[in-house]
Structures are given as structure tokens and as C-alpha cells.
Design a protein around this nucleic acid. Structure first.
Lengths: 212, 212
DNA sequence: ACTGCTATGCGAGTAAGGCTCATGTTAACC
DNA sequence: GGTTAACATGAGCCTTACTCGCATAGCAGT
């Protein structure tokens, strides 16, 4: 994958069009789900001809990946914006803040409940290409990015013991959080509060091994 | 959803055909992934005409759901078969046994790495129909079934404190396990050992609140 | 203003997949 | 043997992802 987008929108008009397409994609995902989502409908609603659609997005998956990417950016932005204001006494406060923000976005951001940061579909890439996998330099595995960001914050705010163990632990925590919160929102469209609480507990207990 | 299958195979020949279709489905999932999987190819490889395919399966998703169902059944079977032989001193041994079996199936059972027990795609069901959701009586949410089974075993072997808290905790644990193991197998086709170990740790710590 | 030239806008058309349905075939029962 | 119901089959329909060649718009040099 060269980039998320096929062609980076240069003119102001193009940027707006891409943004509109992502917006409509998000809304449609909520309405009909990934499988029933059609590129034609996204283009039509966004007022963009189908040919132009494919100038910007590689394919249907590319569209959704771009949305996931935008979600990720928004999440990181919100997190970093809220951190200075909040007084974090323990690292657990940071965990809770992140989870609450994630839940907030699940509730308020269209399409977020369906895709959040994740690839909806994973395509097998044929016999693994050489080199250790998940190098993360390509866009794949957005959760890795989340984990890295949280790690950076952790190291900055609390004096956490750096090391590969923490990296892995945070990644595991993010992945688990993602799954449990998805469950919480499958069980209850507004997000089952008990399951959300349980999610925090899960992460607290687990990370207690790696943070003071 | 009435049932997983459209028509339950009655004759011996039909049962074999359904089984063959599921087998080929699993193999194809490993080869090309869910999205590129075609019903035509599954039917062709299984030596079954396409019309017959649709006599048994509602649609493409139905095929995959049926496979997930079969996987679930196989997993429960294996678990219950191994439990009497193993001497479980702590509940943690049960957790490890379940995870090891899961990992084993990820490695050996075709298609298991892609779908395991899960719905690959979730379709929004329109404004939630009345009644509390996830009643579980319908086939959805296979992980609920896993959680229930594990709970039954837990109550039997160890005298665990029954109650709704444990139910929820086990469900959360299963969901988290699923996610982390998926990560482990995305990172390394053979299943990253460090991540698998971390997965066990995650569950141990979390369930320690609910089991003695 | 005019003329080439490149970059972008556009949508009819193509290939392929999901799924159906009219017709053929077997089995079951009287 | 005859009647009826269940099952089998694959050509074809409809929809969807995606392309490609033409139209248009900006723009540099004269």
C-alpha cells in the first residue's frame, strides 16, 4: 500500500469533496453496514461522480480505511487536548480518560461504532513477506499507533519503566479494550455501562503488572 | 434468523455435501479472505451445483456463519474431552487449557484463523427491536455460548461463586482473548508466543477478581 | 488573445459475483 | 403404475465494483 489515498486532494474543492465522501461513508455504515455499503451511493450522496470517487480512493476498502484513519486522528487529537486539563494522579486516570473518550466517540461520531480505527476486513497477504511483520510504518494496524501514542504520553506524564514489555502490554490493552467495547455496543446501542466498567477493570488489572 | 441452515440435510449424501462445502469454504478463506471468497468457487470446489448451494445456505454470510458454528462445536468438544484427563489445580489451568486449545485450532484448523467463532461482518439490525438485546437464544454471539460453557465447567470443577457478575466477566474474558489472539496471529502466522503468553496473563489478572 | 499542454472531471460501459427460478429428476406412497 | 411431493440443476438476472476514453479547466509561453 503506497498511501491511504490514491491521489492527495490539492485544491480546496477536492479536500471538501473527500471530506464529504468520508462523512457520507460514515453515515451509510451506520445505516446499512459495511457489506451493503456501495461506492455509488456514497458518491451520489456526496454529490461526487463515481469516476472522481475512484480518483481518490483505491477501492471500497480504501474508503473505509481512510475513514478509520480520520477517526484515529480525531481520537488522538481529542485525547491530547484533554490531557493537560485533567489532573491525572494515577496512570489509571489516563486509561479511564482514553476509554471514556473512545466511548464518547462511539456514541457521537457517525460510523465509529462500526469501524473505529480498525480494518473491517483483513485480506490474507500470501506467504508472509520477509522481515518481521507489523512494522507499522505502513498504515496497517492503527491500533499500534494508538498504543504508541499512549506509551509516549505515559512516559511523559508518569515515569513509567520504558522497555519492550510495556510496548507490547499497551498494544494488548488497546486491542482488548477495542474488543470489549465493541461487545458493549453490540449488547446495547448506547454502550452497556456495566461492560464499559468491566473493560476499565480489565485494563487496570492487566497493566498493573507493567506500571507503578 | 430461523436457523443457520436453510434446509437441514436429511440424506447421508446431503450431509457430506454440506460438510464438503464448509471444508472448501474454510480453505478458501485462508487462501483469499472473506471478501474475495465467492459462493460459486466454493460450490465448484465442493462439486456441488450453485443452485444446491443455495438450498442449504441462506447466503454467503450464512455459509460463513455455519462454518463458525461448526468451529464452535469442535472447540467445545475438544475442551470437554481434554478436561477429565488434565488435572486442574487452579482455575488458571482451565484458562490456559482453553487458550492452548484455541491456539491449537488457529494453527491446525483451516479457516479458523479468519473466522474462529465469530461473525465476520456485523449487519446493523435497524432500531433495536424491543426486549433486552443479546438474548442469545438465537445463534448470534457465539462467544456467549463459549462463555456459558466455560461457566458451567467452572461451577462444576471449582466451587466458584455463581452470579451474574461471573457471567459477564467470562464473556468479557472470552471476547478479550479472541481479540488478543487475533492480534497474535496477525503479528505472526504461527501465533506470536509472547503475545499468547500475554493473553493468558491478561485473563488471569482479570478473572482473579471473580474466582478464588 | 491564441495555442498547445497537462491535470483533473466525468459517467457510460464492462466484468464479475450473488442469488433465483423454471424445468428436469428422483423418491415415496397408494 | 400412477400421482404427488421433495430435491437437483445451471442458465440467466440484477446489482456492484471498477475502468477508460473523452470533455473540460487551468496555465505557460508567445
Amino acid at each position: 500500500m503506497t498511501s491511504t489515498l490514491r491521489r492527495r486532494p490539492a485544491q480546496r474543492r477536492s479536500v471538501e469533496r473527500v471530506e464529504r465522501m468520508l462523512d457520507e461513508c460514515a453515515l451509510l455504515l451506520d445505516e446499512v453496514g459495511y457489506e451493503a455499503l456501495t461506492t455509488k451511493e456514497v458518491a451520489r450522496r456526496a454529490g461526487v461522480p463515481i469516476g472522481t470517487f475512484y480518483q481518490f480512493f483505491h477501492d471500497k476498502q480504501g474508503l473505509v480505511r481512510a475513514l478509520a484513519r480520520r477517526n484515529l486522528e480525531a481520537f488522538l487529537q481529542r485525547i491530547t487536548a484533554r490531557i493537560p486539563a485533567a489532573d491525572l494522579e494515577h496512570w489509571t486516570d489516563l486509561v479511564d480518560l482514553a476509554i471514556d473518550e473512545f466511548v464518547g466517540m462511539k456514541r457521537s461520531t457517525p460510523g465509529f461504532a462500526v469501524v473505529d480505527f480498525g480494518e473491517v476486513l483483513t485480506t490474507p497477504d500470501g506467504p508472509a513477506v520477509g522481515g518481521s511483520r507489523w512494522s507499522l510504518d505502513d498504515a496497517q494496524e492503527n491500533n499500534v499507533v494508538v498504543a504508541e501514542r499512549l506509551r509516549a504520553v505515559s512516559l511523559e506524564l508518569l515515569d513509567a519503566p520504558a522497555g519492550p514489555g510495556l510496548d507490547r502490554a499497551l498494544l494488548v490493552a488497546v486491542e482488548a479494550t477495542d474488543a470489549v467495547l465493541k461487545l458493549a455496543f453490540r449488547a446495547d446501542p448506547a454502550g452497556d455501562p456495566a461492560l464499559i466498567a468491566e473493560c476499565k477493570q480489565l485494563v487496570h488489572r492487566y497493566l498493573a503488572d507493567h506500571l507503578p
